[in-house]
Amino acid sequence: MMDIKLMVNNKPYTLNIEPSERLLDVLRTRLGLMGTKEGCGEGECGACTVIVDGKTVNSCLVLAAQANGSEITTIEGVGNRRKPHPVQKAFVEVGAVQCGFCTPGMVLSAKNLLDKKSKPSDDEISVAMSGNLCRCTGYDKILRAVKLASQEGN
């Protein structure tokens, strides 16, 4: 067992964990942050996307120990019903949500893209979202929603 410190959604945590624990499991099981999903366990689907120190990562591929000392944003740290993030608002309004399993990862990838570049091109949006699989929407409305959020964010 080992101690790690994480800042998750601006809250500090000190955790005693197994060195083999994945960041995904620590978020879901130890912190109860169920918005981060597991779809494949091998970094292909992006459902477990979280933002670690300003970068999107697949939390199924990261050991919690590797994230020691990091600042982490999960979907629970992005917006709420009173004040949704522009990406969340756009996803809802455009109709980019169907089954919703990929949605938290999609929202985080989009948010991180717009944090880095407020006016991405269509190609940049597609590339930024290409690590997140969706089986329902055909991506069409997801890409439109990210575009809309980029326009409304400014």
Binding site: T36, V97, T103
Partner: peptide, 21 residues
């Protein structure tokens, strides 16, 4: 009309409970 789906909000906030959750 283009009514907004009620469940979309819970899904963008990561609140919707799937059976693994």
């Amino acid at each position: 009309s283009r009514v907004i789906r009620e469940d979309a909000w819970g899904k963008v906030f990561g609140q919707s409970k799937f059976p693994a959750d």
